[in-house]
Design a protein around this nucleic acid. Structure first.
Lengths: 196, 196
DNA sequence: GTCTATAAATAGATAGAC
DNA sequence: GTCTATCTATTTATAGAC
């Protein structure tokens, strides 16, 4: 397995990804990114012509990252319920970051929607990635209306991230995750029933 | 009932409120607000010294607005269940704006959390207003753990707003609202039971 | 590929005339 | 209270040397 040294371009994208998450897209400047990377602003423009170019690269990176994560979960367990648990678990694993900056995917999509930015749809595609994967898991588990359950769960976790960052309330996160797990179990226990 | 002409200050706050909602706090400049109000930038500074000052005024305005709205709902019905329905109903009533720009309260709190802005707590206080009011309604309706139900409902509606703006999916909003109504009914039907 | 220097536009903010 | 003019810092972006 080759382990090439990261190219400057890769470092820029990696850094921009983090800064866009921690501070938002609009509030993060080229100077911020260049300073964090440790290169001059001039060099920066050798790699990316515009701010939108680097946003595109960041979205691509996140798409790849999340795809890899989902593939990982798919391989790690053959039980779709366990896989859904893995999804829910990231809220706990990343709770510190979430309480500071919300969900990386949700907050970017929200911000781009507000800016009426052309990249909104590409950011939404990351959410769609989760939606389709979750839908597949619910389907494999034999649930009815799997895609609606998937979207419900995705929205639920987004709501948890919003309130968690707004209120900085870890107990709330843990309560909601327990609630989600119980809900998932209820869905998979009675695939035809009237569920909420 | 007196109906004084709006002061310039009031118009500025009103306009800033709308622009902060539609475009975000960081991405909205003094020039944007001044242009929309139809005054010079110089005059602007006569009313507000800094951008944070106007943010404070916008948050105050929203706090007052939402307080009045909650009071209104409290007066309009003596049935706490109906009052909760009124809360859920705003997601439908405001669906167009929500699909464009998300929830005004949630997106501002999210953005300020990300910016690590001092006003984050004041923005979160608006969410807390809803939380306490909803908690009171669940309590009046005889539900157990009323405050947790309130926070759950608040987070749920925030999640709906995030996905609605990211995916621009109106059918999703309507499905979730129906789901919320059914959930509320389930909570109030069995105040002691194990609920999800 | 990386740097310095610099341009052009925009941001937040102030001074002072009317 | 409102305006014009101005200031300073920052932001995006380019030119050209090394």
């Amino acid at each position: 397995m080759r382990m090439p040294r990261k190219s400057t371009r890769e470092v820029i994208v990696e850094t921009a990804d983090k800064l866009f998450y921690k501070g938002g897209f609009a509030a993060t400047s080229f100077a911020d990114i260049a300073a964090q990377v440790g290169i001059s602003r001039g060099n920066f423009y050798h790699h990316f012509k515009t701010k939108d170019d680097i946003l595109d690269a960041v979205i691509d990176r996140r798409l790849g990252d999340r795809r890899a994560m989902l593939d990982d979960w798919t391989c790690s367990s053959s039980d779709p319920r366990e896989r859904i648990y893995a999804f829910v678990g990231i809220v706990i694993v990343n709770r510190s970051d979430i309480m500071e900056s919300g969900c990386p995917v949700g907050t970017l999509a929200s911000e781009l929607a507000k800016l009426d930015h052309g990249a909104r749809e590409r950011a939404a595609a990351i959410l769609d990635l989760f939606r389709r994967w979750l839908g597949e898991q619910f389907r494999l588990a034999g649930a009815e209306r799997a895609d609606e359950l998937a979207l419900h769960l995705l929205g639920w976790s987004q709501g948890v991230a919003v309130l968690a960052s707004a209120l900085r309330d870890e107990a709330y996160i843990r309560r909601e995750v327990a609630r989600i797990i119980a809900w998932v179990d209820a869905q998979l226990a009675r695939p035809i029933g009237e569920e909420l």
